[in-house]
């Protein structure tokens, strides 16, 4: 297993970036991890924030707020942003009591992080080889691999083990926007498979299975079909045994640490 050492220099850099601009010790959330506060925060979020940031925090007219901690923020910074609003943007300041804001921060942090993988079982070294043989053609990890599928460098920090198993065993169950399959038939009969990166009423922007970025005018196509199936093959038990799956997950689990060390 190859692991990036958690060098003190890098860790120091993370702390500096994440720290608030003003001097002094970072203020911690008095309700961090408190289940009741998280429930209260969920309601407050739904009432005051969901209209712009989406009921699930994944963004609507406002940005996704579930990636904040992954991107290196901290509780105090989120608290201050909610308190003061965002200058030059539509996000207003809040006049609510501190306790309510901390409860919202606790909720946001709860939905923004996933528990670490269970370290039990799985050989990460073997998993790396399985990844190289089966996944790297389409998926990148720390700069290496294909570009057709999502970059998995941070995947263990944003997806639970159960969600990853689901995506490996049955990739068509949930396909993220930007990776949905389309089949095009050009005027000359050429058949093109790829994933949709953009679409409007008149055109479609596709990355095909050769990783070629290309836009097409719908009027020039013989037909185009949005497929329900992901381009990623199903990795059932015959293709990937339970043990191999454990190994692969163990490898993906190491990326969580590697990714955080790189920040």
């Amino acid at each position: 297993m190859q692991r990036t050492p958690g060098t003190p220099v890098k860790l120091l850099a993370i702390v500096c970036l994440a720290a608030p601009l003003h001097a002094g010790a970072q203020v911690s959330n008095p309700f961090e991890g408190d289940a009741r506060a998280i429930r209260a925060g969920e309601r407050l979020y739904a009432n005051r924030c969901a209209a712009c940031h989406g009921a699930d925090g994944k963004g609507a007219t406002g940005p996704d707020v579930t990636m904040l901690w992954l991107e290196g923020t901290n509780d105090e910074h989120v608290f201050q942003t909610v308190r003061e609003g965002v200058d030059g943007a539509v996000m207003p300041p809040s006049f609510a009591p501190d306790e309510e804001l901390w409860a919202m921060v606790a909720y946001l942090r709860d939905i923004s992080t996933v528990p670490p993988f269970d370290p039990a079982g799985g050989d990460a070294g073997s998993g790396r080889e399985i990844f190289a043989a089966n996944c790297a053609q389409c998926h990148r990890v720390n700069g290496d691999g294909g570009t057709l599928g999502p970059d998995l460098s941070n995947i263990a920090a944003v997806r639970s083990r159960e969600a990853l198993i689901g995506s490996i065993r049955d990739p068509s169950e949930t396909v993220e926007a930007g990776y949905r399959t389309v089949t095009l038939v050009a005027a000359d009969g050429e058949r093109i498979e790829g994933v949709v990166k953009g679409e409007d009423a008149f055109s479609i922007q596709v990355v095909d299975t050769d990783a070629r970025l290309q836009g097409y005018l719908k009027a020039n196509l013989r037909r185009f079909v949005h497929e329900d199936e992901s381009l990623m093959p199903r990795f059932g038990r015959l293709r990937l045994s339970e043990r191999e799956l454990d190994d692969l997950l163990a490898f993906l689990g190491t990326l969580r640490e590697d990714a955080s060390a790189d920040r």
Binding site: R43, A46, N47, A55, D56, F95, E100
Partner: peptide
């Protein structure tokens, strides 16, 4: 759900999925 009133804050009172 029942919203709480805070002056200057919206009181939408629910979640839309």
């Amino acid at each position: 759900f029942e919203p709480e009133y805070v002056r200057g804050e919206a009181t939408t009172g629910g979640v839309v999925w």
